[in-house]
Simulated assay, not measured.
Amino acid sequence: MYKKDIGIGLAGITLALSGIFYLIPRFIVVPQQLDSLALSPAFWPNIIMGILLFTSTVILFQGLVARRRQRCSPTKKTDSLSTESTDTYPLDGPRTIVLCAAVGIFFCYYWLIDHIGILLSSVLALLALMGLGGERRLKVLLPLAIILPVVLYYFFTRVAHVYLPQGIFYSYP
Rank of each mutant, 00 (worst) to 15 (best):
G7W: 13
I8T: 15
L10T: 05
T14V: 14
F21D: 05
F21R: 03
F27S: 04
V29P: 00
P31Q: 01
P31I: 03
D35A: 14
A38H: 08
L39M: 14
P41Y: 03
I48M: 13
M49E: 05
G50K: 08
G50P: 13
T55C: 10
S56E: 01
T57H: 05
V58S: 08
V58I: 15
I59W: 04
I59N: 01
A66E: 14
R67D: 07
R68N: 08
R69G: 03
R71P: 00
C72I: 03
S73P: 03
S73L: 04
P74H: 01
K76V: 03
K77E: 10
K77L: 13
S82Y: 06
T83Q: 09
T83H: 05
S85K: 05
T96E: 04
I97W: 07
I97N: 04
L99Y: 11
L99Q: 10
G104Q: 11
I105L: 11
D114C: 05
H115W: 10
I116P: 07
I116K: 00
I116R: 00
G117D: 14
L129F: 04
G131K: 00
L132Y: 03
L138R: 00
K139H: 12
L144H: 02
I146N: 03
I146D: 05
V150C: 08
Y153H: 13
H161W: 11
V162R: 07
Q166I: 06
G167Y: 06
S171L: 15
